[in-house]
Simulated scan of single mutants.
Amino acid sequence: MADTRGGLLIYGVANDHTVIGVDWEKADLRQYSQWVRNHVHPYLPDLVMFRLTDGAESLVVVDVPASEINSR
């Protein structure tokens, strides 16, 4: 993903695409960041993470930037 055009990783959605949400008050964004850094290559030094909510459910969205090599 990071070696192409990039994209979004969304936490809080089940495999069947239903929104299950994330408990934003208990979410450890450092833990989410570490998981992404361990599983997305090449290494991503700066991640943009944000909350997306409809008022009832919250999601954690990670913006994975496009590779500098492919964005030229």
Rank of each mutant, 00 (worst) to 15 (best):
A66M: 09
G7Y: 00
A66R: 12
M49H: 00
Q31S: 14
H41L: 14
V64A: 08
A14S: 15
D28F: 06
Y43S: 06
M49R: 00
D28G: 04
T53A: 13
V61D: 01
V48F: 05
Y11T: 00
L44D: 03
A56I: 08
V61F: 06
V22W: 01
E25G: 04
V64H: 04
P42I: 05
I69M: 10
W35I: 12
Y32K: 01
V48A: 04
D63E: 14
V40C: 14
P45T: 12
H39R: 15
S67I: 11
D63V: 05
R72V: 13
Q31I: 06
D46E: 14
A14G: 04
G7T: 02
V64N: 05
Y11H: 05
D63Y: 05
P42Y: 08
I10M: 09
G12V: 00
L52K: 03
R5V: 09
H41G: 11
I20K: 11
P42D: 11
S67A: 10
L44Y: 03
G55L: 04
I69F: 12
L8C: 03
L52Y: 06
Y43I: 11
W24D: 02
D54E: 03
G6C: 10
R51Y: 00
H41K: 15
V62R: 00
P65T: 06
W24P: 00
A14D: 10
L52W: 08
A66P: 14
H39E: 07
W35K: 11
E57A: 09
E57N: 13
W24V: 03
D16N: 15
V60Y: 02
L52E: 04
P45I: 09
D16F: 10
A2N: 13
S71F: 06
V36W: 03
P42V: 08
Y43Q: 09
L59W: 00
I69E: 15
V62A: 02
L9R: 00
E57G: 00
G7Q: 03
E25Q: 11
S33A: 15
I10T: 12
V60P: 01
L47Q: 01
V22T: 04
K26G: 02
I69G: 05
L59A: 03
L29D: 01
N15W: 11
N15F: 12
A66N: 10
F50V: 05
D28S: 11
N15E: 14
R72M: 13
V36L: 09
F50Y: 15
D46C: 06
V22A: 03
T4S: 15
P42E: 12
G21Q: 01
G21I: 00
H41P: 04
G21P: 01
V48R: 13
P65K: 12
D16S: 09
E57H: 10
R51T: 05
W35T: 13
W35D: 07
D16G: 02
L8G: 01
D3R: 10
F50I: 07
L44R: 03
H39P: 01
I69S: 13
V61C: 13
F50H: 15
V40Q: 08
L9N: 03
P65I: 07
V36Y: 02
D23W: 04
E68V: 13
K26Y: 04
P65Y: 11
R30F: 03
V36E: 05
S67L: 07
V62N: 00
G7A: 06
G7M: 01
G12M: 01
E57K: 11
R37D: 06
Q31C: 05
I10A: 06
D63N: 12
R30H: 10
Q34F: 08
A66V: 04
L47F: 02
A66F: 04
